[in-house]
Computed example of a mutant assay.
Amino acid sequence: MFEFPVLVGDIGGTNARFGLIEAQGAMPRLLSHEATADHPDPSSAIKASLAKGRDVKPPRSAILAIAGRIDGPEVRLTNAHWKIAGQRIAEDFGLSSAVVVNDYVPVAAGAAGIEPHDLTPVGPCPPVPGGARVVLGPGTGFGAAALVPYAAHLAIVSTEAGHTDFGPADAFEEQVWHALERVEDRITVEAVLSGPGLSRLHAAVAHVRTGKPHEKIDPAAVTEAGLTASDPHAAETLDLFGRLLGRVCGDLALTFLATSGVYIGGGIAPRIVKVLQESGFREAFERKAPFAAMMRQIPTSVITVHDPAFQGLAALANEGRKFVYHGQVWRKAE
């Protein structure tokens, strides 16, 4: 499906990482990280990245994972200004083909062969082979996809679960919800379970506890203050974040009957593994009557391997016929 060398890219709302798979079966060689704000378009960032590599052979094809919905020949990033068209990139670099997929498609592909040492369990459940899996992650936004066995293939179902509505489940959460900043007059999963969401959640918790509006602070500062207990509102925010994440993980596990596990990626979860293990994450995950018994058997883990998307992009490039997935595909006419 792909002509080697294959250019791979993991393009988020803040940063884009590019690499090169030089031969069939090889793992990607990282070229560089590029800030999306530093470039007018993806081709500019790719050109800069290729220039930073040593002895780089020109790519012959590309597969790019982007943080956005793949709904046409040109796709705009959800949280950045870039517009991405596979055909334009292919023509800019003389490629024979270019494929653009949602950023959680390769994370799902990587979950098919992920090793136990690349996971940190949250809860005691052993993995159950043969069933569907869900991958998700709070980062700049909130991404999610499912990996579903389908005959001899693995079907990857990308979603926009981060843009579904999200509500409170108890009296305290209801108070927090009243104080939460809305995004386009909505409170969605992503509005709460993301980096910006962590800032919103902290401001709302502080508002509820002090009775006064609270300015938002940087999400990294919330995490740091919460982990060191230097700010009681931040510590409470991280605990609430863990419970809310557990609830959403459980909802998606039920949606896809993900009996083989839920895998949590993104930039936040690996930093707060201890919080997830000690908060009400699993309780919220399992509290899904009348299916609580089934939920107790579903493992939940944090993906701790570096660059899981790159591993998944390698799987898609090297074992393309194994997977079925939706994407923007352009191939040069013969």
Rank of each mutant, 00 (worst) to 15 (best):
F281P: 09
L7K: 06
P299C: 15
E190I: 09
A293L: 13
S158Q: 09
E91I: 01
T255Y: 00
P213I: 02
T140A: 10
V122K: 04
F281N: 03
Q277S: 11
R69W: 03
T300G: 10
G267I: 02
R69P: 11
I156F: 03
E160G: 14
H202Y: 13
A220F: 00
L64N: 07
S279K: 08
I268Y: 01
S230W: 00
A35P: 07
V302A: 01
D239A: 13
T164Y: 00
D218M: 02
A206G: 14
I11R: 06
P106V: 09
M27R: 10
S260I: 02
S49I: 01
T140L: 05
I303E: 04
A221F: 07
E190C: 07
R271H: 05
G280C: 08
H153E: 15
L313G: 13
G141W: 00
V302I: 07
S260P: 14
L7V: 06
A289M: 08
G267V: 04
K274W: 04
I298K: 07
I21G: 12
L20K: 10
A51I: 00
A253M: 10
V105Q: 11
C125Q: 15
K332M: 07
A112M: 14
A144M: 12
H153F: 14
F291T: 13
I187A: 11
V157N: 02
L316Q: 08
I89G: 06
I63P: 06
D218N: 11
E184A: 08
S158C: 07
A65L: 02
V183M: 12
T237W: 00
F241C: 12
A146Q: 13
T140Y: 00
I264P: 09
T120H: 09
D41E: 14
R296I: 02
D165C: 01
R321I: 03
T188F: 02
R76P: 04
V302E: 00
E190T: 08
N102V: 01
K57A: 15
D103L: 03
F142Q: 06
V329G: 07
A146H: 11
P106D: 02
I89M: 10
H39A: 05
A269C: 10
P28S: 14
V101M: 13
I264H: 00
A225E: 02
H202L: 11
L77G: 11
G250P: 11
P299D: 14
R76S: 12
V192K: 06
T237Y: 01
R133G: 06
A65M: 02
G261L: 02
P59R: 03
I264N: 00
K274M: 06
P73T: 09
T210G: 08
P290M: 01
A67V: 01
R29E: 07
